[in-house]
């Protein structure tokens, strides 16, 4: 089990309200990602669920029971911290066994579970080391190991990969996803990186200034962002926004078009402009085109082989079905 419901919860630090009233339902076995710019209240929300902070008002239900007043240890949740928060004075074995020791399990039982977790996480050879003697990725695994031995009803991750280098991050991303496939336990994962959100989540919760902007599957967010903020936040490279005459044509205050939905040609197209910078990634090429009448360059994603050079005049044509329209509140026009 691992169903969590937030009912009208708020959080204030002193006079500052960080989370305005918020509702959210997380179903058993879901992989939910909280994503949003840094400082938007993701960690706070996670810590409210964990019980490390009191909610100012509202109710948290875990598995159908009111958990608002339940202390962290009794909520049946496990958390993996950004800094890993390993106990530096204990061996890896003792770190992983700590929650079991606190639960009063006997030594043999503890060893059995620790060994099983170590095997899953490839830590068997490191059990007698101290955290200080491990690499970043290994520490991360120990932190996860410490979480899984408790067999929690849900895992909470707070930006667990942000301290790892890029290559390792991709690996760990896969490992965590695999772990979710195996355990089928609810996971709540906080990140500011929308790529992590898109690749891992069953359900993404986009937050801004403590407010949920949209909840949905990665593709829902990609295809039908509810507002300009979500549209701009999800997807890489970012969506292009255009106003004025460009949007008036489509009966909207603003239109958005993703870089991958613009075709580019030397000869003809809807809009014309000059190529500024072009970035060649091999598989793709990103062109930044200065379109006449627009302040910001338009990003265009093209195949790897196209040959456009700085200063070339090009013509752009948007894929008409893929244009997102927003009203002057920034909300999506259906």
């Amino acid at each position: 089990m691992g169903q969590i419901t937030l009912n009208q919860i708020t959080k204030s630090f002193g006079d500052v309200q960080v989370i305005p009233p918020l509702d959210l339902r997380i179903d058993d076995g879901e992989f939910v990602v909280f994503v949003g710019p840094s400082g938007c209240g993701k960690s706070t929300l996670l810590r409210l669920i964990a019980g490390l902070e009191d909610i100012t008002s509202g109710v948290i239900d875990i598995d159908g029971k009111d958990a608002t007043e339940v202390p962290p240890a009794k909520r049946g949740l496990a958390m993996v911290f950004q800094s890993y928060a390993l106990y530096p004075h204990m061996s890896v074995r003792k770190n992983i066994a700590f929650p079991l020791r606190m639960a009063g399990l006997d030594k043999a039982e503890q060893d059995k579970k620790v060994n099983a977790a170590a095997k899953v996480l490839n830590l068997t050879d490191y059990l007698e080391r101290r955290p200080g003697q491990l690499s970043g990725g290994q520490r991360q695994r120990v932190a996860i190991g410490r979480a899984i031995v408790r067999e929690p009803s849900a895992f909470l991750f707070d930006e667990p990969l942000s301290n790892l280098d890029a290559a390792l991050r991709v690996n760990m991303r896969l490992e965590i996803s695999e772990l979710h496939q195996t355990l089928k336990t609810t996971m709540i994962y906080v990140t500011h990186d929308q790529v992590e959100a898109m690749t891992m989540a069953d359900k993404i919760v986009v937050l801004q200034a403590g407010v949920i902007e949209q909840v949905g599957s990665p593709l829902e967010l990609y295809h039908t962002p509810r507002n300009r903020f979500v549209a701009g936040f999800i997807g890489s490279p970012k969506m292009n926004f255009m106003m004025g005459a460009f949007s008036a044509e489509y009966d909207a205050a603003t239109i958005g078009i993703r870089p991958e939905h613009i075709s580019v040609s030397h000869t003809e197209g809807k809009w014309s402009g000059k190529v500024g910078v072009s970035e060649h990634l091999g598989s793709d090429t990103f062109l930044y085109v200065d379109v006449d009448g627009l302040d910001d360059p338009v990003t265009v994603r093209s195949t790897g082989e196209v040959a456009f050079r700085h200063g070339d005049t090009v013509h752009l044509t948007p894929d008409a079905d893929k244009i997102h329209r927003f009203d002057n509140q920034g909300l999506r026009i259906a």
């Binding site: 911290f81 928060a85 606190m102 639960a103």
Partner: peptide, 23 residues
């Protein structure tokens, strides 16, 4: 000492006494 380590202990089920004594 980073507070997160003590919070981790709290999540792991340590009581206040255990948190101070063992961590």
């Amino acid at each position: 000492i980073p507070g997160e380590i003590l919070e981790a202990a709290r999540m792991d089920g340590a009581t206040l006494k255990e948190e101070i004594l063992y961590i």
